[in-house]
């Protein structure tokens, strides 16, 4: 039931006949336009040539569509020493995101299941430590983690960056699954125990299939989160596996000579494309993820 329906149930006037509503609508629409402006500007700029950028307004449509900047951003712009565009970064990010998401979501579900249904001594305190840790800046744990992973030869490797992503996403992944499972009737779990199902059998055959929607929500959260990460990639991924965000920042902020804003914006759009696509296709699930992640701890 919406507030609006409740406020005006009887023969509502048409929206254009009500000045107060008209004002509200105008406000809402202009706010939306403001929010869309950066995306609009970014797209326009990426299709202009540098010549056109200098000669036309920021908000003006390009006289002719040019894909040169996109091409350059993808395959020939300089990201530091190398000038191969950010395509390598794209593939690095893909390689990082897929295992980080699968492992983190799987572990989160397992932790959540164990915490919600199995009364384990000390598990509550462990979870509390995890939850407090989630609110602390990563920089505090950065150096010790480097020192911990270095002797295992994991710093600067794909495995290393994946492990680090799993570590730092564990609090929120565990939280959302713990809350999800805790909201299920406990009798369901007891019935499975009486049916002779063990720890893993009940998890794999019963709880996991029941949490399919949450698995999707968590996967979307985790995939966008890992894709958008900059700091961990910068420190742990190593030169070989720098994710797209780090390459993008290098491309824009460390180029020598004249800056090519059209290439910058094309590269930015390319980097933002994956999360934006996920968002466009699964916005509703994305919203559910926010609700789940912000639930009470």
């Amino acid at each position: 039931m919406s507030a609006q329906q409740l406020m005006r149930p009887s023969a509502p006037r048409r929206w254009y006949a009500d000045p107060a509503r008209l004002a509200l609508l105008a406000l809402l629409v202009s706010a939306a336009l403001c929010f869309l402006l950066p995306l609009y500007v970014m797209s326009l700029t990426s299709f202009k040539s540098m010549e056109e950028i200098r000669n036309t307004s920021l908000f003006a449509l390009p006289p002719q569509l040019s894909f040169a900047a996109w091409q350059a951003a993808w395959s020939s712009a300089c990201t530091g020493v190398a000038c191969e565009g950010i395509s390598a970064g794209f593939w690095n990010s893909v390689l990082i995101v897929i295992p980080s998401t699968l492992i983190a979501v799987g572990l989160g579900a397992l932790n959540g299941y164990a915490l919600a249904f199995w009364r384990l001594r000390g598990a509550g305190s462990l979870f509390a430590v995890l939850m407090i840790g989630a609110f602390l800046p990563i920089q505090v744990m950065m150096l010790p983690l480097v020192r911990l992973l270095a002797p295992l030869h994991l710093v600067g490797t794909l495995t290393g960056i994946i492990i680090v992503h799993v570590i730092f996403s564990m609090p929120v992944m565990t939280l959302i699954f713990r809350n999800y499972y805790a909201a299920l009737p406990r009798e369901l779990f007891l019935a499975a125990r009486l049916d002779g199902a063990g720890f893993l059998y009940a998890f794999l055959r019963l709880m996991l299939p029941m949490s399919l929607p949450m698995l999707a929500v968590a996967a979307i959260m985790q995939a966008t989160g890992v894709w958008n990460d900059y700091l961990l990639g910068l420190v742990f991924a190593g030169r070989e596996h720098l994710p797209m965000t780090v390459q993008l920042n290098n491309l824009v902020n460390t180029t020598t000579g004249t800056r090519e804003y059209n290439v910058d914006m094309a590269a930015t759009l390319l980097t933002a494309l994956v999360p934006l696509l996920i968002y466009a296709l699964a916005g509703r699930w994305f919203v559910r993820g926010i609700a789940a992640g912000s639930l009470k701890a």
Binding site: P185, E187, L188, L190, A191, A192, L206, P209, M210
Partner: peptide, 9 residues
């Protein structure tokens, strides 16, 4: 059980 606890999936 009170809720029958049938496995919904």
């Amino acid at each position: 059980f009170q809720s029958y606890a049938l496995y919904p999936t």
